[in-house]
Amino acid sequence: MPHSLYRSARLGLIVLLLIGGFGLHLSANDLLVFEPAENNTNGKHIVLISGDEEYRSEESCPMLAKILSQHHGYRCTVLFAIDKATGYINPYQIDNIPGTSSLATADLCILATRWRTLPDDQMQPIFEYLQAGKPFISLRTATHAFKSGQYGGYDWKNFGLNVIGENWHSHHGQHKVEGGRGVIVEKNADHPILNDVSDIYTPSDIYGIANLDQEAATVLLRGQVLKHLDPAAPPTAEKNDPMMPLAWLKDYTAPSGTKGQVFVTTAGAAVDFRSEDLRRLIVNASLFLTGEDVPLSAEVSFVDPFEPSFFGFVTGEAYLERQLRPSDFGLGKATSVYPPQ
């Protein structure tokens, strides 16, 4: 059997096996599974959960999953907000992310949702993952990952405050006007998550941070507000004293009392990931949190071409017109929701 067909068949088999474990309500069209490249597996599983209306996590999560699976040996499962009526990807469907059952075998969860209100059967695996104290990576809007809900008696509206270290607070930089630059915190410059990370530019602005306990957290990067959406733009002096935390590592305590770790960056729009060093930051954090060695310079080249859509709110109808399914973001495909700007 040709290698490409062998890989496709193997991927299809894994999807079928996963669906069997998830139950009858999950279709092969609802998620993506990326096997590690042949002869390059570490035996670990990462679940990436997209679902935000603004920052195109449905584009960035598959891109990151391809890098983590093909370059670093992880099996990766990517989940999406799925329109209940059509089965297409629709980030405005805030109450449906099929496949959270995959967290049962996950060694790491990368969370990129925004104000979701998921049903109990989809919240239960997230709650069990949290209760086990397993590690998270939080991207951008995961400070406000859930809008409401009391599944398990837990206050999901304050998941950001209790786990991530901050709920939604503010745009510290002017949205869509002032970009941001990651500045290394010198006392933590030798942390392995910062290996070969030195030049991060984010078109998305810097978030305001008010509640993070910066003594308990390890702040790795601060966000410097820039005057324009241009990596060469000078800083905006009045907004950089002090600079807000942009990336940090901290412990969290689950309701069970179990301790876990979370790595957070308030960067994370799909266009932000054009930055090689931001991609490396997430790969390094994934390796660190799953107990793998972090190389001096992790491979983060794109597996498929990546031309992300610019961030902004669009209507759910526009998504349904595109009729995008998770498979449209699979290996060998370069999909953006809108033409890059």
Rank of each mutant, 00 (worst) to 15 (best):
L5T: 12
R7H: 08
S8Y: 07
R10A: 09
I14K: 14
V15N: 13
L17A: 10
L26H: 14
A28R: 15
A28N: 10
A28Y: 14
L32A: 08
V33G: 01
E35L: 14
N39I: 11
N40F: 01
N42A: 02
G43H: 05
K44E: 06
H45P: 05
I46V: 15
I46G: 00
L48S: 07
I49Y: 08
G51K: 06
Y55D: 12
Y55S: 08
P62K: 02
K66T: 10
L68Q: 07
Y74P: 01
A81S: 14
G87N: 08
I89P: 00
P91K: 03
Y92R: 10
N96H: 14
T100W: 08
A106L: 09
D107Y: 07
C109E: 12
T113Y: 07
P119A: 11
Q131R: 11
A132L: 11
F136N: 00
H144V: 04
H144W: 09
S148E: 15
Q150K: 15
G153I: 13
G153K: 11
F159A: 07
I164G: 03
E166S: 12
N167I: 00
H175G: 07
R181I: 05
I193D: 02
I200H: 02
I206P: 02
Q214H: 03
E215M: 09
A217T: 02
T218P: 00
L220P: 11
L220N: 04
R222M: 09
K227W: 04
H228Y: 15
P231Y: 13
A232C: 11
A233G: 07
P234H: 02
A237L: 09
P245A: 05
K250T: 14
D251I: 07
A254W: 03
S256V: 06
K259H: 10
Q261R: 15
Q261C: 05
V264E: 08
A267Y: 06
A269T: 01
V271N: 07
D272P: 09
F273C: 04
S275T: 06
L278D: 04
L278P: 00
L281K: 01
V283T: 10
N284G: 02
A285K: 04
L287M: 09
L287C: 04
L289K: 00
E292I: 03
S297L: 15
E299M: 02
V300N: 00
V303M: 06
V303F: 03
V303E: 03
E307K: 11
V314T: 14
A318T: 15
L320Y: 02
D328I: 05
D328R: 04
F329H: 12
Q341L: 09
